[in-house]
Design a protein around this nucleic acid. Sequence first.
DNA 1: TCAGCTCAGTTTGCCGACAATCTCGGCGAA
DNA 2: TTCGCCGAGATTGTCGGCAAACTGAGCTGA
Lengths: 225, 225
Amino acid sequence: MVEQAGISIQQIVEKVWLSIAERRLRPGVQLKEGQMAEIFEVSRARIRQALTALEREGLVTIVPNRGAFVCQPSVDEARDVFFVRRSVERCVVERIGKSMSNADIARLRSHVARERVANANDATTDIIKLSGGFHLLLAELSGSDFLFGMMRDLISRTSLITAVYRNTARFNCGPDEHDEIVEAITAGDIEKASRLMQHHLEHVESELDLREVRDMSHDLKAALA
Amino acid sequence: MVEQAGISIQQIVEKVWLSIAERRLRPGVQLKEGQMAEIFEVSRARIRQALTALEREGLVTIVPNRGAFVCQPSVDEARDVFFVRRSVERCVVERIGKSMSNADIARLRSHVARERVANANDATTDIIKLSGGFHLLLAELSGSDFLFGMMRDLISRTSLITAVYRNTARFNCGPDEHDEIVEAITAGDIEKASRLMQHHLEHVESELDLREVRDMSHDLKAALA
DNA sequence: TCAGCTCAGTTTGCCGACAATCTCGGCGAA
DNA sequence: TTCGCCGAGATTGTCGGCAAACTGAGCTGA
């Protein structure tokens, strides 16, 4: 049983995703297959699969015969993502109210607790993962596989948007607001939980600088229009 | 410029999709790569790409080291799809009210007219395509790329569910209800359009037989549990 | 009789190599 | 100078082949 399997596709996707979320890969950068194959020490076939997965998640765009590039979401697209996300998250919260066991509550509280630890330790990677994971956990507890899949999509795109447009240096999407939401759900006050969620999302969006377009180096034509 | 390019991946996906929607491919059937490569006269690599695309659309499930099979959506999953679809379509209609040009109205009416023609001619393939296309067009006119993508997903999955669970021989999701929705939108009565859409979707769902599980040949364990 | 094992046949997963396409430098003419 | 052309280099798209994994029939032994 030698360690010969190499790195899995999912692991490649996750590494690239993290690199984008941590702003180590800037939007517009080309992800060359050969280069990545060399880095991860696998053949191009596996890289291609990882890239198509990343395209599905909205993190890269693949141009035929050109290659894969880290997405540069426009301001309109960013607002669009947040608009849809507000609707979907409201849907999640409303659906969650119908069936929440004590074990579910425990999972939520445990998750928020881990967020607190990550925040205290300034563990950027964990903070990013757990922050999205909270919303993903809510979707999972809603019991709808579809909502779960949609949230997965929305979260990865939100991560990209945050990486591109975030204004402040720190993530203020801290565990406090998540905690309030959990408490509202625990108390059975779905109306309040929904309101808190809307406020939370608006808060996250408000910390982005969505007024001006960043990095117009590739958008000269749009700038001159 | 010889005809040498062969069939494109998108064309393969569409052919398989149609075969499923027209019930010529039954749920649970394995889509073997070699077999399909022979049928479409391309190499397995392209077939693999088509299959992953079909998996993304929820039409097939890919089991590692086993292969790709036409999805067998459970009753719960079917209800889940319709639940999410009602929410999303409501979202689409509400968003559409804000900005509709005369050209948009014209496109909608033209589409419904084509649906009428297809229905009159009993052109099953066109009926299936256009029926989903109407909802897709609404999503496009909503101006949100996200809603459009989500509707694309939901429609393909709905098509599969309809193919598996539909009770009546004919599609009663005729152009009449679509027409009413268009007229409500034209009149600017978004509230009415939203109500009509809800009713329309409930109508479609009600024509399915979601009480019993079909084809348990592969689910013997579940049947005996 | 039946559970467990073995092994050939089939199918998928992966890789390296070749063909098609695009990029971008230089080169020449208006 | 500037525009268009072109060819070398680089990158992606596709293919056929090989190794790994799974399936199912047949065999063995209790």
